[in-house]
Nucleic acid binder design. Sequence first.
DNA 1: GCTATAATTTAGGCGAACCTAAAAGTTGAT
DNA 2: ATCAACTTTTAGGTTCGCCTAAATTATAGC
Lengths: 261, 261
Amino acid sequence: MTKSELRLKLSPTEAVEDYLKTIYLLREEALARGEAGRVSTNALAERLDVEPGSVTGMLKKLSGGKDAMPPLVVHEPYRGVELTPVGEKLALEIVRHHRLLELYLTRVLGFRWDEVHEQADEMEHVISEEFEEKIDSLLGSPIEDPHGDPIPTREGDLPEQTDLVSLAQLELGHSGRIRRVSDQDPELLRHLAGLHLLPNAEVTVLERAPFGGPVRLRVRLSSREPAGVTSGETSNGGSLLELEQSIGPQLAACILVKRVS
Amino acid sequence: MTKSELRLKLSPTEAVEDYLKTIYLLREEALARGEAGRVSTNALAERLDVEPGSVTGMLKKLSGGKDAMPPLVVHEPYRGVELTPVGEKLALEIVRHHRLLELYLTRVLGFRWDEVHEQADEMEHVISEEFEEKIDSLLGSPIEDPHGDPIPTREGDLPEQTDLVSLAQLELGHSGRIRRVSDQDPELLRHLAGLHLLPNAEVTVLERAPFGGPVRLRVRLSSREPAGVTSGETSNGGSLLELEQSIGPQLAACILVKRVS
DNA sequence: GCTATAATTTAGGCGAACCTAAAAGTTGAT
DNA sequence: ATCAACTTTTAGGTTCGCCTAAATTATAGC
C-alpha cells in the first residue's frame, strides 16, 4: 500500500527505475567509449543480473505506455533500446538521487567511497524530492560525486565533462589528471585507493607493455586527497608525493583523466 | 535482485518488517492504554490498510518459520497475535530505524516534525546498519524522537517512560509536561504545533466539559521549543509565554504528559 | 439456548517481476 | 549462399503480497 500509493501518483516502480537508470548509464558508458547507437537487450540483462527474456518483457511494458504513463523507451527489436525524453528525465532523476546520495554519504556521514554505491542504490528509490533538495543545498549544489561522475541538475542538465580519456587511451609519455572512476565495483575502488589512484591525482604513462601487458604510471598525489577515500591506514606519514604504479589494461580503462600535457 | 539479494541474507521482506513493526506499535499503544493481551487481526488490517484476510495469510507465514527463519509471531487463531523474542528483536530494529530517521530528518536536515513520519516509513527499510550507526552517533545516541517516542538501543532495550498519562486522563487542576505525541497523522501534528502544544510545554487542565466536550488548558511554553516544530510563521514576536487552548477529547488522548503537580 | 454481529479463515484470483527452455530471427564469415 | 553464432522473442511457470467473496467460528444480548 505504501508502495502502491506511491506508484499511483504516477511514479514508476523500483524495477522500472532500475531499467531506466541502467539504460541511461550503459548509454553514457558507450558514449564515453565513442560508441554510438542503442543499448542492447543483452547488455541490460547482464548489468541488471536478469535473463534476457525478462528484459524483453520489461522493454515491451516500458515502450507500451499505459496507466497515463507515456512511453519511456523506444525499443526497436533486434537493434536495441533508447530512452524517450520522458524516460530520460526519469532516468536522470534517479541518477541524480544516486550521485547526490553517494556524495552525501562520503562527505557528511563519513563513509568511504567504496561503501556508498550499494547504499545509494537502495536509497535512491525512496528519498523524497524534499530530501533531495536538502542534501543538495547542504552540499552546495555539487556537480560531481566522489567518483567524479557528474550530478544532473534538478532540471535534468548534465555538467559537461570535456576531453576525458581513459588511461588505456592516453599516449605514452602523456599526462592527465584523474577525473572519473567507475563506481560499480567496491573492490576496484578499494584497490585504486590503495594505489593512490584517486580523483585529482596527476598521472603520466611511462610505459605500456605489449599484448595487453601492464601500464606503468608515475602518480603525483593530489595535494588535497578527496575526503573519505583512503582507508583507515594513515600510512601517509612520509612526504612521498610521487610514486610509481603498474596496473592492468582493464583497470586502466576504468580510469578517466583530463589531459594535462 | 538487489531485493532478493538482501532477502537472501535472511533479512525479512519489507512487508514482513511492516507487519512486525505494526504488531509492536499496536501492542505498545495498547499497553499505554493499560490494555493487556494480544493484537487482533482486524486492528492490524486497519493500521496496515489491508484486508483482514490478507493479514491472516501473512500471520500464517510469520508463525510458520521457514527458510531457516524461526517463527516471528505466535498466532492463536481468534485471539490475536504476539511477537516471539526473535520477532520483537526485528520489530525493534525497524522502530529504531524509524525513530532515528525522524530525529535525523528534523535535527540535521531541518524538516518539520509533521514531514518526517512518511519519509522515515520509506527509508527505515533500506538504510544499512552502518548508516544507522552513523546517524546515531551524529545525534549523540539520542533516547527519543521528535514526537517523544523512545528510541530502542541497538541491543533492543527501550528507555523507560514512567508515569505518562494522556491529557484525557489528567485530573482537573493538575499539570503535566508534554512528553509524547502520536506521530501517525501529519495534520494532527501541524495542528498541535499551531496550538503550541509541543513537547516540553507545561499544561494545566482548567476545565473539562461533560459529554466528551472540549478540554480547556493553560499552556506554558517551553523556554526552548524543540527544533523544526513550528512552521514558517514566526509569530512569536510577542513575549507570550502563557496562553489558553481548548481541545477535543480525542486530541487530548493523543497527548501524553508527565505529571508535574 | 439461540441468534445477531463481529472476527476469522478459506478459496480462488490478480499483477508485478522474475525464471527456464525452446523457437525464431539476424548477422557475419567463408 | 549458407551456416554458425548471436540476439531476441515466445510460452509457460514461480513467488510475493495483495484482493474479493463466501464460509466458518466466536461473542454477546436477550
